[in-house]
Nucleic acid binder design. Structure first.
Length: 586
RNA sequence: GCCUCCGUAGCUCAGAGGAUAGAGCAGUUGCCUUCUAAGCAACUGGCCACAGGUUCGAUUCCUGUCGGGGGCACCA
């Protein structure tokens, strides 16, 4: 990459300056930063190296810069000129040839343009969403789903081996599953035409029943108090009716509830799976918590913690010394006085299992409400002898849902959640995905449902897709006119001298660095901003540099078409990381 | 009380310790007989919450204050 070449030239220049006695930095170690400056008047790349070396050299920044510049190979090869500016920035102006080379490289590498092997050897497991099997995937889960999926793509693009995993809490506290089963059983009866008595809330979270019996069978079917009243269970019940008809209608309430307690979680999981696929997210593994218990791994983990001296008995329970192993503020219960293990035991065993499967980097994406749990899990991992630094927790901040300017209150138990699938149906997969990665996960975002549903140009995903479609349109038009696309390697690239052409080329040249930065900083949202910048540069180029007009010389035309093609490739590659469709036409 | 994230334009948000703090939306105004106007151009809009500190340099890092979100279980 270009920055690597410049970095090495700079390093050589510093060494040469020292050897020549121009610069004495006293053996000080230094990093070389090279960035495209915000203002293009400051050149193609700028370095603050001289400012950093002020202190060790005892010289003013501008003086340091001048002495380094003296030893740079200016005029030969890459560098056209270097200007010392401000307090001592070195601004590099490169020969246009390097930009023109980029054009050929993009076309040659095609789908591989922007990939790197900087993360080769990493085996990463990203666990995300992991919603309890008691409700549908919600809009709030969507943010984690998008972050995890895009991050996986980014890491893969940089050469890592990545696996995506969904952890199913199917060994939940049994009353939750009981309620789920009862709720589903009642919905089943409702599907068969029975009258259900749904309680009303009186504002003090007290359920009030009307007591009406069923007109069909004369029995009384109350919807369970603290059940799951969401419409999604009715959908699953409908599905069950299609499969088994009235087979469960005649059972006693107790038998029926037991039957549906078995059916409910798998029905829920299947629905979650469908919704996530509609969102374009496919997991490599759906990992069942229960499988850990079945394989005896939870008990084995607890024994191991005991053997290592990190677990102790107190007040009839078994405690983990989380305070000794992490920054946790108090020790946590591992096994309750009732002999039932807590989730910490299961999760520690789960993460041991991840390591044992050969992964050397674990990333967990959780909602910010889990933040108090970070240190506990790290303690659990450490108590089993693993490096807890290899286990990273990413906490996505909440999304505040707003509808008609009013915050939408949610919660699985109320059934008032907004299912992700609803959003997908209304705005489409692409907009739903793009919206969810529009800003940093560290920010509590306001998600305006009305705006997201609006299919208009306010929607930023359209701008990105339009950029691709416009490039495609020009290329399509040229093909219709019988103009063949000349390979970029053969085109007269040096004819691309217009300011807008060079601006666009600079943007395209930044792409590999942007992809790497987005991966390194776990910041996929950078790509949504960056694709807008490419789009902007492309539209400006389009406005000012016609390719297919009669008065354009064939060589210029071919070079411009080549630039459209390169832009198309970069935008397509970027959208593919985001999992957003690159449209041929709007 | 403790932990954590946030506070940047009217609104939603970017800003990897650098030079004159940026986008989109909203508002005002131009540009389609011309490769897609889902576009482009111009204008308007800021004590980067506040106070200290570190630094050649702080919107960015540290401390504190104020304001907002989210957590602080033998629930997950």
């Amino acid at each position: 990459m270009i920055t690597e070449q410049l970095t090495s030239l700079l390093r050589d220049a510093v060494a040469a300056a020292q050897a020549a006695g121009d610069l004495n930095i006293d053996g000080q170690a230094y990093d070389i930063a090279l960035d495209p400056p915000k203002q293009k008047q400051f050149g193609d790349f700028a370095s603050n190296l001289a400012l950093i070396l002020q202190k060790p050299s005892g010289l003013q920044g501008r003086e340091v810069a001048a002495r380094i510049v003296k030893h740079l190979p200016i005029g030969q090869g890459l560098i056209d000129r270097v200007e010392v500016a401000g307090p001592g920035f070195m601004n590099f102006y490169l020969k246009p040839a390097w930009l023109h080379e980029t054009l050929a490289r993009i076309e040659e590498q095609d789908a591989a343009y922007g990939t790197s092997d900087s993360r080769r050897g990493e085996k990463t497991l990203i666990e995300f969403v992991s919603a309890n099997p008691t409700g549908p995937i919600s809009v709030v889960n969507g943010r984690a789903a998008m972050l995890g999926d895009t991050l996986a793509n980014l890491l893969k693009t940089n050469g890592a081996e990545v696996s995506k995993e969904f952890y199913i809490n199917d060994a939940l506290n049994s009353t939750q599953i009981d309620k789920l089963g009862e709720s589903l059983a009642t919905r089943y009866l409702e599907q068969l035409g029975h009258n259900i008595d749904f309680p009303e809330e009186d504002g003090e979270s007290k359920a009030i029943y009307s007591g009406q019996t069923c007109k069909q069978c004369g029995r009384y079917h109350p919807f369970p108090e603290d059940g799951y009243p969401g419409q999604y269970l009715a959908d699953i019940a409908h599905q069950i009716v299609l499969e088994v008809g009235t087979n469960y209608e005649g059972l006693s309430d107790v038998e029926r509830n037991a039957t549906f307690r078995e059916l409910a979680p798998s029905g829920m999981i299947a629905q979650q799976q469908r919704d996530l696929e509609a969102f374009g997210v496919q997991f490599d593994t759906w990992f069942y918590e229960s499988s850990l218990y079945e394989a005896g791994k939870v008990h084995a983990a607890i024994d191991e913690m005991k053997a290592r001296g990190y677990a102790y008995e107190k007040e009839g329970a078994l405690w983990l010394k989380t305070t000794a192993l992490s920054k946790d503020e108090k020790d946590r219960v591992l096994v309750r006085s009732t002999d039932k293990e807590t989730y910490i035991a299961a999760d520690a065993a789960y993460h041991k299992d991840k390591f044992d499967r050969g992964f050397n980097r674990l990333i967990n994406i959780w909602g910010a409400d889990h933040h108090g749990y970070v240190e506990r899990l790290k303690a659990g991992v450490a108590a089993l002898g693993y490096d807890s630094d290899k286990c990273e927790m990413i906490l996505t901040q909440m999304i505040l849902l707003v509808r008609n300017g009013e915050p939408v209150r949610g919660g699985k138990r109320t059934g008032n959640i907004i299912p992700l699938i609803e959003l997908i149906k209304e705005v489409g997969k692409d907009a739903a995905r793009f919206y969810n990665v529009l800003n940093s996960y560290e920010t509590t975002a306001v998600f305006d449902l009305d705006l997201a549903k609006k299919q208009s140009s306010d929607n930023p995903v359209w701008y990105a897709q339009y950029a691709h479609a416009r490039c495609s349109a020009v290329l399509r038009k040229s093909a219709e006119k019988g103009v063949a696309l000349v390979p970029a390697a053969q085109v007269k690239r040096e004819l691309l001298t217009h300011e807008k052409e060079l601006d666009l080329l600079r943007k395209l040249a930044d792409y590999p660095a942007e992809v790497k930065a987005a991966a390194d900083l776990i910041a996929p949202h950078r790509l949504t901003g960056y694709v807008r910048e490419i789009g902007q540069a492309m539209h400006q180029f389009y406005e000012e540099c016609p390719a297919l007009r009669e008065d354009v010389l064939p060589d210029v035309r071919d070079a411009r078409l080549s630039l459209f093609n390169a832009t198309r490739i970069v935008v397509r590659n970027l959208l593919s990381i985001l999992g957003v469709t690159a449209l041929e036409q709007m």
